[in-house]
Design a protein around this nucleic acid. Sequence first.
DNA 1: GTGTGTCGTTCCGTAAACGGAACGATTCCG
DNA 2: CGGAATCGTTCCGTTTACGGAACGACACAC
Lengths: 226, 226
Amino acid sequence: MLHHSLMDSGAQNPRPAVDGGTLDIGRRIRGLREERGISLSALARAAGVGKATLSGLENGTRNPTLETLWAVTAELGVPLAMAIGTPAAGAVADPGGDERSLVIRGTAVAGTLLRVFEDEAVTYELYRLVVRAGAPQISPAHHEGVTEHLTVFAGTLSAGPVGAPLRAGPGEHVSWVSDVPHVYAVVGDQDVHASLLIRYPRPRVGPPATRGSGDPGEEGSPAPHP
Amino acid sequence: MLHHSLMDSGAQNPRPAVDGGTLDIGRRIRGLREERGISLSALARAAGVGKATLSGLENGTRNPTLETLWAVTAELGVPLAMAIGTPAAGAVADPGGDERSLVIRGTAVAGTLLRVFEDEAVTYELYRLVVRAGAPQISPAHHEGVTEHLTVFAGTLSAGPVGAPLRAGPGEHVSWVSDVPHVYAVVGDQDVHASLLIRYPRPRVGPPATRGSGDPGEEGSPAPHP
DNA sequence: GTGTGTCGTTCCGTAAACGGAACGATTCCG
DNA sequence: CGGAATCGTTCCGTTTACGGAACGACACAC
């Protein structure tokens, strides 16, 4: 995932105070909910959480559990990371984009998570990338079977496995299996604009199974209408 | 999707119960910690959380609070999103039904407009395509200089100018200049899933709003928080 | 050997997040 | 004007995640 691939391994980021961050998350959740025209009651019902829980979450008066966040974000159809956002969320205006986007920054790479597709057996994450000229960025390996598909629109990029990066100019496309460390480097001095699709063969399947009664937690994709 | 069995189950034996998501997070945290050579006790002490809490978090036997996750990831110096890992998107399996999406349908091609990028001199439109097996579809010519960039994820597609279509299988990418009539045809009988990016060199006529791409304003990390 | 340090896990009382059920405030019908 | 929906918030008993303090295991001194 991009969080692995694009973030500096030692990346430190402004981290708001806990209540501030929780409040941020609440605002983001509320924004996503209202964007869809869903009422608090309806979302709470659909996500299987209490109205009090969701109200407290949106207002920042509670310190939500991961399970709660999972349930709510899954029902909203956004990645959990988007709800958490980055501390700098809102600071970056992407053309045609809303400020709720998840923006990932590394030394040289800035990525905006555009969309997540959940199919039967795979998950796609679609990013828009801007790679700045200068020092290359190396990202550690991902999990097994993850592939990255990069389409360049401006500039020239050298990207791929550290040992054998591929070069792509405007309009060209490169793909590689990203279970090995890989690198992003601009060729020349023109910033690179590209789209990046990451394919995860094993999709995350919603909230973690609860302990206790061993419900065979299937629910590969949450029921639209519980 | 909180399981109701959680409440009915009463006090069962404290079984660790394999639960994917939380356990994944635990593994990731443990990996990051061991990567740094820090002991569990030391990290717990430094992060200001109890050893029991961290132990339970790493082993997946607890459902951590956001506050806990924040404290631990802050001490590890990684973004919270990295601990979370793969974004979980549940409800949105097929964006075709999104009320805000522009859906383009032809005889064989169903495309969902995912995003529009307006840059200084170009406009990008990003689609997700599903091409049904069967009769091919022919699209008329676009305006001058328009290019299409197609990345295939499932199935095999033959697409491009009518006179010289290109073939692309899973993971492959094709591009063509679409100022001539072009065709989409499935090779074989498996539906094709792909992403399509259309690049229009025509600039947007509106006033240039402050856009992130145009301003590479590197702000690094403003306020690191220990 | 005994003592002292740390390691990660488990026990336990407490604080708090949880869902359900109330609440007042709207809005929409009859 | 009720009456019945729904909205979001608040109250409350239950559930559970929390940190501190134990525990056994292991390593190194002396």
